[in-house]
Design a protein around this nucleic acid. Structure first.
Lengths: 230, 230
DNA sequence: TCAAAAGTGTTTAGGCTACACCCATGC
DNA sequence: GCATGGGTGTAGCCTAAACACTTTTGA
């Protein structure tokens, strides 16, 4: 069978991307959802998604979709899983590649609300979602937990400078479990990937907490993979 | 925009699956490759793959492809990653979902050789592969290493009964590093997921090594996820 | 009797966990 | 001066790593 026969007789499918966008407001881990504006299921909450074009990779499609929603270009983004049940979208056969993104919620909160009917939902208050998006979100949360334990991606969810209590809150939110303050501090600082600033954050306490910044150079001097974070 | 307009104006893409099939012969970890029999790159070594049909999920497509090659139905199989670079297949735009499978090499070795131009290659002697299949294999190996440390999937690569030295060989092959025999034995046995048989394997030593079998019931009494194996 | 692989315990070091009090500051 | 959250040290436990000799048996 030659190439024309083989390739041309095959089924062609709609391919989509859906983005699970996580943000952290200092207390809660949240996901960004939009109101779906096409049928079927118009008006239900949904992950942000879109179809993959002929001339772009799924990574590029996911970046395009995220950029369209948030204006962000260089967010941390990672492919999650391909969802392909035949009847996952009742309107048509659509294979969807799910991506998850981590963004710093503060910087983009307002812009998002202005431009789209989008809202941040705490992970324990997610509404019913269209199709298999609930499953996608569940899987994304799982992956985030795994990932954050071994790679310094948690910092993507925080502003450039952050306090140790904020960082601990983030890890507690991701793991859904309280952590010991002294053990947490010791372990993070012992990795030697943070730089302490002179400046203090004074909004959430009278004493104030020192700001730290993540030092990518220091980190890259560790093993690229496999460093245990928490 | 209504559903007809939205869905019908989208690009439709060829979607394929490619299977990274791992086997273990008691000493080496191997991958099953086939000679590609269509253009482009006819005659080059390749992962086993095929196009996804309109009426099947990618999981089903991967099972179909694996079954076609090996006759196996119920192998351990897991989705690996979606590869979607626009020019990954020079003949046409094809999005490929890669799967990796673990099979017991001994039971199926002859059948495979008879029916297809397929061969087992040790992982350190993989030939040039078509398209991005080298990258797929690299990623599969990485995933196997991660996975086998936390879940008892290594047993899928062994016959139903196996000796501790065989099991250790397997882990050494996957991790590409020697392990201490005493520490290995103690750790595996302490998990209490193996049953020792009376019978000994006598081919590879004069003394003989006791056979063990993996006990799925005992295992499922442990946490479903998150047990550290090695 | 020798060669070749199987089987078996102990010691040590490092990391993880649990735990409670003082500090700095704004009101 | 008091309420609030920030910051700090130690001791016990457990797990992981290092390490060498004896056993079995076929040739």
């Amino acid at each position: 069978m030659d190439i024309i026969t083989k390739y041309n007789t095959q089924d062609r499918l709609l391919v989509a991307v859906d983005c699970i966008i996580f943000g952290f407001d200092g207390h809660q881990l949240k996901a960004l959802l939009v109101k779906r504006n096409i049928d079927p299921d118009r008006g239900k909450w949904s992950l942000m998604g879109g179809f993959v074009h002929q001339d772009e990779s799924t990574d590029e499609a996911a970046q395009r979709v995220l950029h369209h929603l948030t204006g962000l270009q260089t967010t941390y983004m990672e492919q999650l899983y391909c969802f392909s049940n035949v009847d996952r979208d009742p309107a048509s056969r659509v294979v969807s590649i799910a991506y998850f993104a981590l963004i710093n919620i503060k910087d983009y909160q307002e812009r998002i609300h202005d431009e789209h009917e989008a809202r941040w939902f705490p992970l324990d208050q997610i509404p019913d979602l269209v199709f298999d998006h609930t499953e996608m979100l569940r899987k994304a949360k799982e992956r985030l937990q795994q990932k954050v334990a071994n790679q310094p991606i948690g910092f993507e969810l925080l502003p450039g400078k952050f306090t140790l209590p904020q960082l601990q809150n983030l890890y507690e939110a991701i793991y859904e479990t309280p952590l010991d303050k002294r053990n947490f501090t010791r372990k993070i600082l012992s990795l030697d990937i943070l730089n302490k600033l002179e400046e203090k954050e004074k909004e959430s306490s009278r004493k104030g907490a020192f700001y730290y910044v993540f030092d990518r150079d220091k980190f890259s001097r560790l093993h690229q993979e496999g460093v245990k974070f928490i």
